[in-house]
Design a protein around this nucleic acid. Structure first.
Length: 596
RNA sequence: GGUCCGGUAGCUCAGUUGGAUAGAGCAUCAGCCUUCUAAGCUGAGGGUCAUAGGUUCGAAUCCUAUCCGGAUCACCA
């Protein structure tokens, strides 16, 4: 039950009785009462003055009085200026705790048989370099939002479109051929994606040398770039690849294989998996048919040199190229093709692309072109556009070596977690296996929470020198609270104290009331996170809940409480808070330990 | 130049469809472990919510303009 809705209905009834008028949706403003005032929920009466035709305070008193008399669960009220603060009875809150405790997967919508199917595309790495911090944000967001949508009762398909072809891949290949001396992951012990990435950097370095050399012979910058032998070789290799030259294909699949082995390790470390992996080498020709279709319909036009365009000037955008003069396709062509294919193959309701905000224009155009072509699902494409991860010095640049490598970062986080745990003596009585599990959970939890707590659309700054915190508003703090609760529950069980199945009506304290209230906010947080495609909402909620619980934990005794009913309430409450913490963290892809 | 996004405490970030005296964490300072896990709790200091107008009972939130930062407008992806 949604408590605010319940109260809104009651208020509506009261207004009907008192003034004979039913207020509109926006006239009924109910919010959680602010901390500094007494009450559970607050009705803002200003918008109702037109109905009551009385002063704010008088209106508030009238409504409060009526609510108190007519609604059994309303205990008391107070009025401050135009705000009516309403308190529910302890019995009501005990009841609310019971419903939460008795609802399996409280806060998550039940998956319906008629559930809508949503495809989430994320990660989408290039196979010429290892993943870095920017990719981590993408992966964590994509994975988390998939879970959020599942929690909203949708069927979700997580897909990855690997960019495994193109000139940038050829650059690594050329560099390896020229300078690699047959190096393999097995021969040098390097992780495959890092090995290939190193050759991408080598290509860039050698290419720059050639450019300088040509420029010293009097060529212009542009001429030098175009005529450098390495670039010519790379382009030649791309042509051979497209012609499926066996030798080039062999090298290409070998080197990509190394990269995939490397990626697998990284994905596994991050706890990320997909339902389906697409490869651009298999999809890059898709969409040419769509282009032909668009030409027939007159939506696109062909220029003299044979290139095909879509004119979007009337929509406030530019002309968009869809096929080059030589008939080869561009990124947009492929995305048109894959979108059409996916919607027809999987009967998708929605398609969400987790892609950085630098591609907003691309997705705007994609939607627009699809709608011009008459695909009525075009407005079911969503771009979960997220901001850049910056270093204090600014943007990360792979070629300048200023990137924060994903594998390194994960390793560092785990190492820090281990150090910290040892310092605090948290690992003392555990087996090595248990200790490892906890350290991995905490290290990853810190990293994931750090990234996901920030609103996706905002740029974020990561300072490698100040390592990610483990105290305060952090993943470990939330994990710690969960472990703390589990410890209490264990101790209770050891003492032979049972956690009751239902809570009897009993007087409740301030913190208990507040916690139950917060638990009941969880379902709408899940819903909002889904609507806004923002895991950050779940993260912030988890933090608020945990902070509240720790105050409760500090101020109240649980196991040692002598009143059995009160003890029962606190145990049920604790267990339920732990459950909601676990659920909220699950949405973020973060595991919670039962001890740490 | 056009379009889009952002600007809140020294730093990193919250701030529901406009609501009460703008909140956390980090950092700084001062307290709390013989009591269920101190990765915790309590307190202090720290703000022209970029700026100027406007809308109204009420604006960090909505509108307009300006300033600053970022992204984008490729026969790149």
């Amino acid at each position: 039950m949604n408590i605010e809705k319940y109260l809104a209905d009651a208020v509506r009834q009261s207004l009907q009785t008192l003034y004979g008028v039913t207020p509109s949706e926006e006239q009924l403003q109910i919010a959680k009462t602010k901390r500094e005032f007494d009450g559970d929920f607050t009705l803002v009466v200003f918008p109702l003055l037109k109905i009551s035709k009385k002063k704010p305070e008088d209106t508030a008193h009238e409504i409060g009085e009526h609510l108190q008399k007519s609604v059994e669960t309303v205990d008391s009220y107070n009025v401050i200026k135009g705000f009516l603060n309403i308190s529910f009875s302890p019995a009501f809150w005990c009841n609310m705790l019971n419903t939460a405790a008795q609802t399996p997967n409280f806060g998550f919508a039940k998956p319906e048989s008629s559930a809508t199917v949503k495809m989430v595309e994320f990660s989408s790495p290039n196979t010429n370099k290892p993943l870095h911090l920017g990719h981590i944000r993408n992966n964590l967001l994509g994975y988390s939002i998939s879970r959020v949508l599942e929690a909203n009762g949708h069927k979700v398909l997580k897909v990855n479109l690997v960019n495994d072809r193109g000139i940038h891949i050829c650059k690594s290949m050329i560099a390896w051929q020229r300078f690699g001396n047959g190096e393999t992951p097995a021969s040098s012990g390097k992780k495959g994606d890092h090995l290939v990435g190193d050759y991408y950097v080598i290509f860039d370095r050698e290419y720059k040398k050639q450019i300088e050399e040509l420029k010293s012979k009097g060529l212009s910058e542009d001429e030098a770039k175009a005529q450098a032998p390495l670039m010519i070789e790379a382009q030649e290799m791309l042509r051979k690849w497209e012609a499926k030259d066996p030798e080039v294909y062999q090298l290409w699949s070998t080197m990509n294989g190394w990269v995939y082995d490397g990626f697998d390790v990284t994905y596994k470390a991050l706890g990320i998996e997909f339902d389906k992996i697409y490869h651009e080498s298999e999809t890059y020709l898709l969409g040419k048919k769509i282009v032909a279709e668009g030409l027939d319909k007159g939506v696109f036009h062909k220029k003299e040199n044979g290139s095909v365009w879509c004119d979007l000037l009337a929509d406030g955008l530019d002309e968009k190229l869809l096929l080059r003069a030589d008939g080869t396709s561009v990124y947009m062509t492929q995305d048109l093709g894959t979108a059409v294919q996916r919607f027809s193959e999987y009967h998708l309701d929605d398609h969400i692309y987790v892609v950085g905000n630098e591609q907003e224009y691309h997705f705007q155009v994609l939607r627009l072109i699809l709608s011009k072509l008459g695909y009525d699902w075009s407005n079911h494409l969503y771009h979960l556009s997220y901001g850049m991860v910056q270093l204090p010095e600014g943007k990360m640049k792979s070629r300048e070596g200023t990137v924060v490598d994903a594998d390194d970062l994960v390793d560092e986080m785990k190492a820090t977690a281990r150090e910290m745990s040892q310092e605090l003596g948290k690992l003392d009585e555990l087996t090595e296996q248990e200790a490892n599990d906890i350290v991995n959970m905490v290290g990853l939890g810190a990293l994931k929470y750090f990234i996901l707590k920030v609103d996706p659309k905002k740029n974020m700054t990561f300072n490698p020198k100040e390592s990610i915190d483990f105290n305060g508003n952090t993943g470990p703090f939330i994990q710690y609270t969960h472990a703390r609760i589990q410890s209490v529950l264990r101790k209770a069980a050891d003492a032979g104290i049972e956690v009751p199945t239902t809570v009897d009506k009993v007087d409740i304290g301030e913190k208990e009331r507040e916690l139950i209230k917060m638990l009941h906010m969880f379902p709408s947080v899940v819903q909002q996170a889904g609507e806004q495609l923002s895991p950050a909402l779940a993260a912030n909620f988890a933090y608020e809940l945990v902070k509240e619980y720790n105050q409760f934990y500090h101020d109240y005794t649980i196991i040692k409480e002598s009143n059995e009913l009160v003890r029962g309430l606190r145990l049920v409450l604790s267990r339920e808070v732990a459950n909601v913490i676990r659920q909220a963290m699950w949405l973020l892809g973060i595991d919670v330990p039962s001890r740490m």
